[in-house]
Amino acid sequence: MATVVNGIKLEDFNALHEELKRNAEFVSKIHKWNARIRWAGSGFNFTSYVRNHKFTISEPSDIGGADSGPSAHELILTALGACYSTGFIYNATKRNIQIKNFEVAIEGEIDDILVFFGLSDKGHPGYKKIVVKAYVEADADEKTIKEIWEAAVKGSPVGNTLQRGVEIVPQVSLVRK
């Protein structure tokens, strides 16, 4: 029977790893990611389409939204937490370490939210600091777990995105039907 660690078949895992080492076309394909967001037609309600998935993005009621889903700035925190989690499971599996429980709590602090509302131009409306706390339960020593966590943090696509300045190219066009 195939060896399964953390619900992942090691055979498939290693095959994927080999494929990524060799197949440049595949690698360049997974370098590009797409999303499309549509305004739902009323208030702060949006639907995001990502491949065959769709989900709702909104704003909490104290910001005038219908709270039909998490907000954009909460999704960023989620994305960071999920990315560290993915990296953690990936690196643990690579080392053949079985994880029992894994959870992260994320807290982000905005520099000056009033800029968003057009009520200030002192700071900026983005996050200045994000704290990510991971809780792990596993049959492994502290040192190994620490190594896995550090590898996850260092190799995190979302973490690196946030820590470096990303070039954003905003474009707008008026569409007449």
């Binding site: 797409n34 499309r36 549509r38 389409y49 491949r51 065959n52 769709k54 569409v175």
Partner: peptide, 27 residues
Amino acid sequence: VAEFMDFAEDKSAFEALLRKLDVPAFA
């Protein structure tokens, strides 16, 4: 497409198309 995107089984196919055409789903 915006009106039936939610029903389409293969949403990613529509996404690829919209991207190729450089048009929004509502157009």
